[in-house]
Amino acid sequence: MSLVDDLYRETILDHYHNPRNRGTISDATVSTEGVNPLCGDELRLFLKIENGVVCDIKLESRGCSINTASGSMMSELVLGKSLEEAQAVISEFKNMMLTKGEDVTLPEELEELEALQGVKKYPVRIKCALLPWNTLDEGLKSK
């Protein structure tokens, strides 16, 4: 396997080059900041939660390919979800990234995230992939 197969799969680069839900929300109900102290990558996350549903999510990030792509995929997957559903997606993703060794299969609607499994071969980069998710987790818990 090469770096391009593991790390820079097409899906990942697509999200890196065209991150979804980028920007800010002026009337956000939650906003959180995340940093990766190792590399200084920063992330600001905005959520609009109404009636227990994530009805808007925006990310402002200056990070590496993995960090940006991971945040972009995350934003698509939690948009429109209830808080419980969003938490469940976070758990699925973290579980996949933190399970050592074999590949984990995700439910069909989360399948796209499997592209990030290649990152597991590069332990220092796992933090990059997790940053948006940890920031979201923190944001939801601060609610």
């Binding site: 770096l3 820079y8 190792l38 590399c39 200084g40 990070g63 590496c64 390919s65 590069y122």
Partner: peptide
Amino acid sequence: VHPHDMGQILNESGIAIRAGHHCCQPLM
């Protein structure tokens, strides 16, 4: 190219460089 990605790509050739803020965030 983000410096992280640069560091990773060079590591494939056995080259060890550093990527990041080098403990100098104000300078960055």
